[in-house]
Design a protein around this nucleic acid. Structure first.
Lengths: 211, 211, 211, 211
DNA sequence: GATGAATGAGCATTCATTCAT
DNA sequence: CATGAATGAATGCTCATTCAT
């Protein structure tokens, strides 16, 4: 751990950040490459030098676009959540009336893309604590938003008497968690094809909330 | 010379290890302290110096008991699994005839102690990949043993027509995973007391396998 | 982390190296000082910290100019060979027609400068094996070039019927070797002045190839 | 370089050494294994731990038989010289009357065995300077004895008018040196079989001293 | 934006050797 | 002889970050 003393904490707007198109482009370029590296080797094991090499941006100029390594992690995690939330805003989704179908859609969409960024979820679980408390809170509130969307579906389903469960919050949490099964336990899940897994998960989850 | 060439990799028994009582005592002393440190700050973020300080063993003598930092992680993870497996060997457990009751017991025992070492499970998920492939394999096969024990219970239950599910392996995996819900998502679970959580989990899990 | 995993081996051009004039200047500055140190105390016995101190370049910035200690040794040895080969390219040398005179010139030039870098030849013999095979091959092929130049002279002489010997390659090798006599056995050679030695060597070597 | 301050220098008989048969047996056991290790990896690169492992003697008990690592090197080099000198004492050797034949015999004997311990000669050249001055002197005087024996042969030959050369000492030195050609330049000598090399060397050396 | 240089802090691991029991 | 423990001193190398030009 080098120089934990001089830490510049990300998120604290000390200097008005540039926000020209090019600036943002460079930033997202950094975030994307960093995401890949963090997923593959972990946050602590990824050096700024590697990020510099991956992006082609000189390490010293890197600090022109981001404030610190910590900020990169923050932005990376933020991006993952943004992508998760986008799933719920896909056109047509909110217009689905049947809660069961809606839940099914969520599961399938999540796995469809989530299968791809399953590693990213793992990153979330693994690296969150590398963030200082203040940033961690921001991240966790983002997470809660995802849980909330699931909870809404469940509550609507209970009103319609199609779903049955004790605690909506608990169940929603469990569901988000279950959706990450593959990512977190992929070593034991390799025996199943994507389709098999989707099927098994769907049945498991639907069974848990139907009467 | 920090010997880049002659690297000794943990687990590879080049020399027969010492195994006197005193030696093993020192080893487990190291492992226990390291476990705490790894849980709190992560493997990569914990330095040998810190482990040395925590154990009171001079850093150079530390290498008398362990081969490398990597080996410590290996032993730490191994110990966690050993503790998990011990749950299934508690006296009286195997004599329970009712599968539902047996499953309930597992859940309660797991949470009872697991609540305590929840952090350790997180460590498992988080740090496994810091191990080289060879050691990772050993660890994952240990993990499988835990899953296997659950699977046995499920299969016995299905034979007795009390349980119903599609895929025994998938379900057992999911259950082990669900049992770690609290550890991995404690930030969203703080709203529940230990008892509430146990109740909710139990109901959720039993519902998933009953007809 | 001393990066046991991501090791960068000297010579393997992962990243295009810098090559500005200033960069090269710093590099040769390092090489020169390192040569001295290696000659005096040996490669293994010379620490990077010493090289840092000798060059006045902070040890951490040292790694900005060289990839590893190993690379320094490689560059040091390379430079020695470059200097040796330059002897054959001195103006006027190739225009000497008489092979005996040509050989004499080589011997005298070699000893003249070689007397100065005799220690460097010792270094060559002593430290070559500290290099990994890949780099060692490069070095040995450089060495062969020196032998080849001598061989050329010998062959020309044989054609002209002034020289006589069985095996050109063997003889050339032996000659290069004999030229290093002083460097390698200086402890027994101290009784002779530079001039005496040159005379003795010259006579010995010429006698070996004349009819 | 660890603790160069506390150095216990070999050779200085501080404590009356044990000299029972077993003691000497253990010592020569250490020396033999150390010789191999030093040849393969160099003196500085060989650790006491490795010597301990190779001999099967616990590293701490090693110091019961030798005073320091330095002493091991001294004893190793001493043994090499003892073996060289034995060549001149082989029965029948001194009774050879013809100097040319005598020289031929030396060459052949030397290469015959020397071919086997060529590496040891290299060790001599490479590691001598790892010894403190006092010990180095002892070693070099041993070396001189070898040279002296050759010189004697040469002088006898000159008296008998079969040999002709300028400086006996220089020539003898050169001959010892030439005999190590293979060991020191084996990388370029691999093209020749042992027999070829012996032939070439013999002719080269005889030619250098005959009229 | 590129570039040369610096800096404070640390890393895991090894070394030869000694000593008391 | 074996064994547990200590110790003073390094080792090569990397880290994130800053700054002036």
């Amino acid at each position: 751990m080098p120089s934990m003393t001089r830490k510049t904490v990300a998120g604290k707007e000390e200097t008005p950040r540039k926000s020209s198109a090019l600036f943002l482009k460079r930033q997202s370029q950094i975030i994307k490459k960093a995401t890949k590296l963090f997923m593959k080797q972990g946050y602590a094991q990824t050096s700024m030098r590697e990020i510099s090499k991956a992006t082609g941006i000189d390490i010293r100029n890197l600090y022109y676009f981001i404030r610190s390594k910590e900020e990169i992690l923050f932005l990376v995690i933020e991006m993952i959540h943004r992508r998760e939330l986008e799933l719920f805003e896909k056109q047509g989704f909110t217009s689905i009336d049947d809660p069961v179908l809606q839940l099914r859609t969520v599961i399938r969409e999540f796995i469809d893309t989530g299968y791809g960024f399953g590693q990213e979820i793992l990153l979330l679980y693994r690296e969150s604590k590398s963030l200082p408390n203040r940033l961690l809170k921001v991240i966790l509130s983002r997470e809660s938003q995802v849980v909330d969307r699931i909870e809404e579906i469940l509550l609507r389903g209970r009103e319609k008497k199609v779903f049955q469960f004790e605690d909506a919050s608990f169940t929603a949490n469990m569901m988000v968690y279950e959706l990450s099964l593959h990512a977190l336990r992929n070593w034991n899940m390799k025996q199943y094809s994507k389709e098999e897994l989707t099927d098994l998960l769907e049945k498991h989850m639907i069974k848990a909330v139907t009467a």
